[in-house]
Design a protein around this nucleic acid. Structure first.
Lengths: 338, 338
DNA sequence: ATGAAAGCGCTAACAG
DNA sequence: CTGTTAGCGCTTTCAT
């Protein structure tokens, strides 16, 4: 047991008294091989603890099972779930997810392009839009690139993107059904593509109904920003009865700001609806009405699209809209169940 | 631009009018090569968009930069942060993290051992203890195995593990300083190694001081379980004035159970302390005192240990205790700052 | 300092 | 059905 070398197909072949090709065939799904030979080889392989070297196999086949997932702010509840389900969906299809977490997009380019060294089977991006150079590179190397809720670049890969108009309508309906008529919406200044899309779609929708909508800037999409925004915009909020926080994290912060710092009653004085349906939205202290984005479904679609692109590198770009689901809870006056 | 093949070192060599070895040397840090040649090669490489194929390089050098991170329950706040910092620390050291998420340990074995096909540079485990077979395999193939807060297996790899006695003492001190004398501790039934360690260490400590400690079983380590446990153990809790929830998630659930379902005042009727210091602990609705585990520090240590093991495969097993830090907030009576 | 040559471990086309 | 042969793209002695 002082042998630290991995056994190779050669070792197995010798022990089984066959050629290396036979061993290879034995581990290749659709290959023709006699039962007897296979048994011999399997026995030898088991005895030696043989496992085919994936690196060598990939080198030969010009294609690895490696898929890069690019995700910033992984410590954020919704992103963590996205990554969890992406990872799971990829593994279920036999891929191996490589996790790249980069907060600042400067770090990104070298990292991404160095990933391409691995002959990736695909790249799935859920955070910043990758630099144009990387997009170009993916295209040239025919590495499928799937963008989830990201800013579309010209020619920039397949996209899974929520329908911002439907999203805004779902949020509006929840608030309106709960009796809200004078609206406000939190507008994060780190202008993520779909988040900003929701803000504008909501604003447009409200105005189209002849009602007023206040756009309240807030620093970013965090809890802290939501709470600060509630305090900062206290005067405006006093004139409103319905608040759309474009992210549940923001909504939780805003709720604490409204109630704890500011003494408002929710939903009596103000109805609040968030977006995403993170776990904390269901916590009793928040009991937040929201619009659910289903990350599991989203991940499934992303992997399907990636596989499609692997087959059909030249098919026109895909754009998919995963379904949304309104979730009614206490912040819009639904009686608590518990 | 209809060429989808990656340029190889051969292409670069031809264009630069040198041999493939020269190209290789040019991309190998400590190799001796004339400046002039290097410039020619670099120019050719840039022109072709050449990047060394990592698969081939690894095949040759028998060693990849790939490190598997095994993490269950990635959608849990503390775990998500652990993975984020692990990923970041690995990338900073030039490694490439492969993310494996497996909830049930049945799925685990084939997955893990299939990872070994990639000539991993290491494996970092933050969820279930890997099956003994995999541990053995890692040992045989000399793949460094680092376990974070996991059940130690005989011979089972290096460990980063919080000091449960210190952890229990920190929690106890916070509660005791806040005036608690009759204690309860939540005991999750999914018996994670360190969580159970905290429970027992806390219990032992309280008893050693001649005070009583109630062990309150709860289903697992989730928010929902914490809330349910608070309801279920209402009678016992009425006799207590200090609660140690072995996880912040449990603590948040318990707090909502105590306050919202049960009408208790925290900290007046009951002081509560959690563990981990997840983001939600700092949210105004909870303002939870807790003991911080620093996942960034933890990740740094894990990667250091892994690198050490890569150098010294035969050195004796390491066991590291990252530092803990008590965090005082409202649930133990610290006046709110805001 | 550079090039030729020999592989790393595997797969696949081709005979037999 | 099986073995032989020729690489995949790279690194690394070994001469020169």
């Amino acid at each position: 047991m002082t042998e630290h070398r991995r056994p190779t197909s050669h070792d197995v072949a010798r022990l089984a008294g066959v050629s290396r090709s036979a061993v290879s065939r034995c581990f290749t799904p659709g290959a023709s091989i006699a039962d007897e030979t296979r048994d011999k080889i399997m026995a030898a392989a088991a005895q030696l603890g043989y496992r085919a070297n994936a690196l060598a196999r990939n080198l030969k086949s010009q294609q690895s099972q490696l898929v890069a997932i690019l995700a910033s702010r992984l410590d954020t509840p919704f992103r963590a779930r996205q990554v969890k389900y992406l990872s799971r969906a990829l593994i279920a299809e036999g891929f191996r997810p490589l996790l790249l977490t980069a907060e600042r997009s400067d770090d990104l380019e070298p990292l991404l392009s160095s990933m391409l060294d691995y002959n990736l089977a695909g790249m799935i991006v859920t955070s910043d839009t990758p630099p144009a150079a990387v997009i170009e590179e993916c295209k040239r190397l025919r590495v499928p690139l799937v963008l989830i809720n990201r800013n579309p670049e010209p020619n920039g890969g397949d996209r899974i993107e929520l329908d911002t108009v439907a999203a805004a309508k779902a949020a509006f309906d929840i608030l309106h059904d709960a009796g809200a008529r004078r609206f406000a919406v939190l507008q994060p200044e780190d202008r993520t593509y779909t988040v900003i899309g929701r803000v504008h779609a909501f604003d447009a929708l409200v105005r189209s109904k002849g009602m007023t909508c206040h756009l309240l800037p807030c620093e970013n999409q965090s809890y802290v920003a939501g709470r600060a925004a509630a305090q900062r915009h206290a005067d405006t909020l006093r004139d409103c009865d319905g608040l759309f926080a474009t992210t549940d994290l923001l909504a939780c912060g805003a709720l604490d700001g409204l109630r704890l710092d500011f003494g408002l009653q929710v939903p009596r004085d103000m109805r609040v609806v968030g977006f995403d349906d993170i776990e904390q939205a269901s916590w009793a202290a928040y009991d937040l009405s929201t619009v659910r984005q289903d990350p599991e479904r989203q991940a499934g679609i992303a992997v399907e699209v990636m596989q499609f692109r692997l087959q059909m590198p030249d098919a026109p770009t895909l754009l998919k809209h995963p379904p949304l689901e309104p979730i009614l809870r206490g912040t819009t006056g639904k009686p608590e169940l518990t």
